[in-house]
Design a protein around this nucleic acid. Structure first.
Length: 892
DNA sequence: AACAGGACTTGGAGGGACAACA
DNA sequence: TGTTGTCCCTCCAAGTCCTGTT
């Protein structure tokens, strides 16, 4: 489907020519159908059509604010420009995809430049020359070793204490299981980075076409699949026979070379970065086909990095020696061949930008319900009542158990009350009347009829419609968060020192608007007030921002929605960077392994930190201020967070992002163990484990190993490669349902690696006991059936049922059948229970949204005829529209 | 080099809508 | 038809990392 054309690309206010349906879906909707197994889809997707867009409304809405979301429409845009296509599609892929690729709905993932909006929506044709170019750029790779698997994943094969015990976190949880960290569910092996590269040159010298053909026949995949993955003791540091050994390896600092060729060695220690032994065969083949992909994202990446290096990153050794002290912490329809600006670098992100600003929560509506002070009703001004109500409605939350919360609230509220107010302390305040009022409002809302709810929803929608969309370079895009945050009490996570503080109301005077020069300035929705500032900065993607009232150093931004091409583009770049790491990981691992014993303490710390980030998918760990919750990441680990368990185990125990507990005991290589011992020596429990290190030093080092590499790339890499490997290893022929189970299993492993946790649902225990009860009932039935079977075999009538009634006289065969049915039922329920228990603390969504390259999923769906809707919901489909036309052979 | 500021991604909780079940 | 459980979406907090200034 091509982008629709428009007569009015830049509508100041009313770009809601509603009838077309939501923009994002429109982009690829028509083709989506063909694209992914339309036959299967029929059965698959449950009523998207009938599914109304949800509306969320705040119960009695303290501030009167309600939310809604709805469909909108595409801004018809001018003619689509022909996309310079760029696909090297194998025959196999063509047969699978191309049925639809004449009308590719989304960006061709192999387009030479990323993410042009047009590309996301325009017909794509394959340009043969481009294929050639791709083939040239990327020499076929050889070999697959295990380097490209996440460390943690590799460990699987080993004899680990693989207690798949669920975890728990924050919330005090009832059962002991809960105390087992997510991370523990994965077995980890100390043999990290010790995979040998058993080169398999078989593919190296074959022409791409041949390889592709073989792949069609499953050669590439099965080859890999069938081969066991040994975990030999050491991974060679060098593979001088690499295919690329003869290829000139430009330095990163050579921009031209960097761009023109595959990214290669940056440092001599990494001699053959571009050796491919860490890439599975299939992957390597893919590489050539995927070069379009890479050529765009990677180029940008390289350009970016080159700049960095040029501008002065000295060799890391020099850099770190000195530092000992820890630091504190286009035109509408630009012709589509043009390379889109990438994120960062102060580059242009858009050419024209039109939007309507933001919507404010409605002013506070006083309810007049009086709270009590020392048992007596108190008159409050609307302003004071508003704040009192914020507090009253939090009665049922855990915050009410926290003194810090109450104290902070009181301090802020007292300022508003003034010295001479009758209310002199919080202890004597009784907010019950307000709480009760709130509950009854909530109840009223619940009791509303469907019609009433619908009407309310529509009303809200009307109000919000115009804020929901922006026009970016002539394309209508959804705005992510156009609602200004309402006032409230700050709900920091963990032991946040500022919890309970009053988050004041944001006014137009707080808000800076960013908009295209020629676009009309959004009308300020509050009469008599005006915006703080209007900017026309096209190097950023935000539409508006204001200072966070809780921490004025921070900003709150209004961005485009995840489905926008701007976001899609950077998403794609992120995954391309992670894929690039695959080519470097072998050498990176060799390099840090070497440094485990370095005499240079900084070097040694960097090596161990990188190892932990790689192996355990830890976050980088920036320094934090005192007015933030006390959480840590890798660089900020304290001595007390790591306990040594001889001979070579480390026990990690700390609070990570969002104060989520990370608890994991893991075997490490002996040199790492010894290094940790050294880092802990003569330090107090609260001292920094890595005292020579911070994230900027670590990232500076990583950048020397691979262009653009930072700590977080390891998380993306490890997550995506895990999914890719597991899917390809475990998917068997069979029912769609079974394949989905495989996917979920892989997804779960990723969630465990990333320590994505959720609190156990309130009803979990009840649900479990219900299931247990049912199983018990079935067991009783089974027992009875067995008795009856015995009797029937002896020619006796069945026993009487528990209520004394006489049962039907069934023959042994019938009874046997019943027994096996009951057994099956019991087994299924037990399985369900296990899954439920297993996943009660694991959140699968986060990794799907942020860490798993959607192309892995889409390609897998295509290969295995699984409807993509079974894996991605509507939002994810929209967010990942750029990945939808991926080649079925795509491997991460 | 250190620091501050700025921009963007990642993350879990909460609660509504809807499907499944009794 | 009412209840329960799951899924989905929004909200906004909390990270990461880059850039500019001193």
């Amino acid at each position: 489907m091509a982008v629709e054309t428009s007569d009015k690309p830049n509508l100041p206010h009313d770009f809601d020519d509603d009838d077309d349906g939501p923009v994002i879906y429109k982009r690829y909707s028509s083709s989506k159908k063909n694209q992914l197994h339309s036959e299967v889809r029929k059965s698959s997707s449950h009523s998207h059509a009938g599914q109304s867009y949800r509306q969320i409304s705040d119960a009695p809405s303290l501030n009167g604010q309600t939310f809604s979301m709805q469909k909108g429409s595409t801004v018809p845009s001018p003619k689509p420009s022909p996309v310079k296509p760029s696909v090297a599609i194998s025959k196999a892929s063509k047969s699978l995809v191309n049925t639809s690729s004449t009308k590719l709905p989304v960006a061709n993932s192999k387009a030479p430049s990323l993410g042009d909006k047009q590309k996301m929506s325009v017909d794509v044709k394959v340009e043969p020359k481009y294929i050639e170019r791709c083939a040239k750029n990327f020499v076929e790779d050889s070999e697959d070793d295990e380097d490209n698997k996440p460390l943690s994943f590799r460990l699987k094969n080993s004899n680990h204490d693989n207690k798949a015990t669920p975890v728990v976190v924050k919330k005090s949880s009832e059962d002991s299981d809960d105390d087992v960290p997510l991370a523990k569910k994965l077995y980890r092996n100390p043999n990290l980075g010790t995979t040998s590269s058993n080169r398999d040159d078989s593919d190296q010298k074959k022409p791409i076409s041949k390889i592709q053909k073989e792949r069609q026949n499953g050669a590439g995949l099965s080859n890999k699949k069938d081969r066991p993955s040994p975990l030999p003791a050491k991974r060679p540091l060098d593979n001088s026979d690499s295919l690329h050994a003869s290829v000139k390896k430009p330095k990163v600092s050579d921009p031209v070379a960097s761009i023109k060729t595959k990214p290669v060695s940056v440092k001599h220690e990494l001699k053959v970065e571009d050796d491919d032994d860490d890439i599975p065969i299939s992957q390597r083949i893919k590489k050539s086909a995927m070069s379009g992909d890479k050529s765009s994202a990677t180029k940008k990446l390289l350009t970016k990095v080159t700049k960095v290096n040029k501008s002065g990153s000295k060799p890391f050794k020099k850099q770190i020696k000195k530092t000992v002290k820890k630091s504190g912490s286009g035109s509408e329809y630009s012709k589509s061949t043009k390379l889109l600006p990438s994120s960062g670098d102060g580059q242009k992100k858009w050419t024209t930008l039109v939007h309507n600003g933001v919507i404010f929560p409605p002013p506070y509506q006083p309810h007049g319900v009086k709270m009590l002070y020392k048992g007596r009703p108190v008159d409050l001004t609307p302003e004071l009542e508003e704040v009192a109500t914020m507090y009253a409605v939090m009665r049922d939350t855990e915050y009410m158990q926290k003194d810090r919360f109450k104290e902070n609230f009181w301090n802020d509220w007292r300022k508003l009350l003034g010295r001479n107010h009758v209310i002199q302390n919080l202890k004597d305040c009784d907010f019950t009347p307000i709480y009760d009022w709130y509950q009854s409002e909530k109840e009223k809302k619940k009791q509303m009829t469907t019609e009433e709810k619908k009407a309310l929803k529509e009303e809200k929608m009307k109000l919000e419609e115009k804020y929901m969309w922006a026009i970016v370079d002539g394309v209508k895009e959804k705005v992510g968060n156009f609602r200004v945050e309402p006032p409230g009490l700050f709900r920091g996570r963990g032991e946040h020192p500022k919890m309970g503080k009053l988050k004041r109301r944001i006014r137009p005077g707080d808000i800076t608007i960013n908009i295209g020069k020629d676009a009309p300035i959004p009308e300020c929705p509050i009469p008599g007030e005006s915006w703080k500032e209007i900017r026309n900065d096209n190097t950023v993607t935000w539409l508006a921002y204001w200072s966070d009232p809780i921490n004025p150093k921070l900003f709150k931004y209004v961005f485009l929605a995840a489905s926008s091409s701007l976001k899609g583009q950077s998403d794609k770049e992120k995954y391309e960077k992670a894929r690039m790491l695959k080519n470097y990981i072998g050498n990176i691992r060799s390099a840090y392994t070497k440094d485990f014993t370095s005499k240079d303490i900084t070097k040694q710390q960097i090596a161990v930190a990188t190892y932990l980030i790689d192996k355990l998918a830890l976050r980088a760990g920036n320094e934090k201020d005192d007015d933030e919750a006390d959480t840590v990441g890798c660089c900020t680990l304290k001595v007390e967070n790591v306990t040594r368990e001889p001979p070579n185990k480390l026990k990690f125990n700390f609070l990570g992002k969002d104060s989520i507990k990370y608890e994991n005991t893991v075997e490490v290589e002996l040199p790492v163990y010894n290094a940790i011992l050294k880092f802990q020596k003569d330090k107090k429990p609260g001292d920094d484990l890595f005292d020579q290190l911070d994230t900027s030093k670590l990232n500076a080092h990583l950048k020397e190993l691979m262009p653009g590499l930072t700590a977080k790339v390891f998380r993306t890499f490890n997550a995506s490669i895990t999914l890719d490997v597991m899917l390809n290893k475990e998917t068997k022929d069979g029912e769609v349902g079974e394949k989905i189970v495989v996917y979920q299993h892989a997804n779960k492993q990723v969630a465990i690696i990333c320590n994505h946790q959720r609190s156990v649902s309130k009803s979990h225990t009840a649900q479990m006991s219900k299931l247990t009860e049912k199983i018990d009932e079935l067991q009783a039935v089974l027992k009875e059936l067995k008795t009856d079977l015995d009797r029937a075999r002896k020619g006796k009538p069945p026993s009487k049922s528990s209520d004394g009634k006489r049962k039907k006289n069934l023959g042994p065969e019938m009874l046997e059948k019943k027994i096996s049915q009951t057994n099956a039922k019991i087994e299924k329920m037990q399985r369900d229970m296990k899954t439920k228990e297993d996943l009660k603390t694991v959140a699968l969504g986060t990794s799907k949204i942020n860490y798993l390259d959607p192309r892995i999923t889409v390609a897998w769906c295509k290969r295995h005829e699984v409807p993509i809707e079974k894996i991605f919901n509507k939002s994810l489909l929209a967010k990942f529209c750029w990945a939808m036309d991926v080649d079925p052979d795509f491997r991460f």
